[in-house]
Simulated assay, not measured.
Amino acid sequence: MQSEYLFPVRRDFLKMAAAGTAAVFTGSLASAADSKPVTIGEGKFKFTLDENWGKLPSGMHYGLGCAIVVDSKDRIIVTSRSENPCVAIFDTDGKLLETWSKELSEKIGYTPQQIAGTAHGLYWSKELSGEFLYWTENVAGSGKKDNPRIGARVYKTDMQGKILYELGNVNKEGDTTQKFDFKNPTDVAIAPNGDIYIVDGYGSQLLYRFDKNFKHLKTIGGPGNTHGKFSTCHGVWVSTLNKEQEVYVADRANNRIEIFSLELDYKRTVPGVRNPCCFYQHDGHLYIPELDQRVTVMDSSDKLVAFLGDGHSKEGKKLAEKDVNANPDKFFTPHALTLDSKGNLYILEWIGFGRVRKFANAGAI
């Protein structure tokens, strides 16, 4: 497909108050009791845990897991609510290539503490002029004089984190800055023609469409459970699985996926998901991290074809937080995911130590 904008990613993220309780974990994953590899899924969707991937050196740690994306060189970029590092970049073998904290702070105008306090979404986009990152910030601060409101921005950067355009809660408008009344945005996605879709999932429950130059085109949504209304519209994605491109919205608290045309006309709903967070498209399928202890795979016909790492027992009992490390084949709070060019799966969870993990492709993808 000829396209001005090519975009195999995005990703995604929520505001739980579990940071305090999650801090009891050390961040190290317990090994299985025997030497058998830890696997999830089956057949085409079978993956094997790489227990050594994604480790940070002494003195660094992850916070609540926010977003994880892959670039054209199969570099895995991880963001979490941590001041050190704010961003960690690995190769597919788990070698740590770069970390950003002070470096990113100097480019985007926030301290590492402020970055950690507002971190949420990240989307990688390949465009005619290069590769870019789109960042989505949550809100921090009360707005009072001694506690100014920060965050509530979506901004585009180069691959080194230099801001190219800011939209939202900016200090003043200019050629590369635009004020816009986001309440608490959560995710962004880019269409092949460059149109930009943004969800205000922790705030107004609105879905916005902009053109590639950040000109506002349309707004839909608002709180509710009727079609076209949302309850935590946490993630957004432009699917190119079929001839007709469509906008998918992870309507998390309504436990559904709402699907729209590129012009944001409602088309249909996919039920049967549990707190969907966001999407990633790979090899004819959409992968969906679900905050309620599961990853789901959906085909181009919207059929749910695989469920991975389900933390619910057959009796419906949920995996307890204290048992997370003892169950490496289960997910607790999947918040974001991505897949590399070889079909390896990377998962990041909304838990105090991030729990970023690689599951190597063991199927026939």
Rank of each mutant, 00 (worst) to 15 (best):
L14D: 13
A17F: 11
A23P: 08
A30V: 15
S35P: 01
T39W: 01
T39V: 02
I40S: 12
G41Q: 11
G43D: 13
F47E: 08
M60W: 02
H61F: 06
Y62S: 03
L64T: 06
A67T: 07
V70N: 13
D71T: 05
S72K: 15
S82G: 01
A88I: 05
D93V: 10
K95R: 15
L96R: 04
E98P: 00
E103G: 03
I108G: 00
Y110V: 04
I115P: 01
T118Y: 07
A119P: 10
H120I: 03
K126P: 01
A140H: 09
K145H: 08
N147R: 08
G151M: 09
R153V: 00
V154Q: 11
K162G: 04
K162P: 08
L164T: 13
L167H: 02
G168W: 03
N169H: 05
E173M: 00
K179D: 00
I190W: 03
N193F: 01
D195Y: 12
I198Q: 04
G203P: 15
G203H: 15
F210E: 04
I220W: 12
P223Y: 14
N225S: 15
N225W: 06
S239W: 04
Q245Y: 01
Q245S: 13
E246V: 10
R252E: 02
I257S: 02
E258T: 00
E263I: 08
K267Y: 10
R268P: 00
R274W: 02
C277A: 11
C277F: 06
Q281T: 14
Q281Y: 09
Y287K: 02
E290C: 15
D292C: 04
Q293G: 04
V295N: 02
V297W: 04
S300H: 11
D302K: 03
L308M: 09
L319Q: 06
K322E: 12
N327W: 12
A336Q: 03
T338Y: 08
G343T: 13
G343A: 09
L348E: 07
W350K: 08
A364Y: 15
A364G: 11
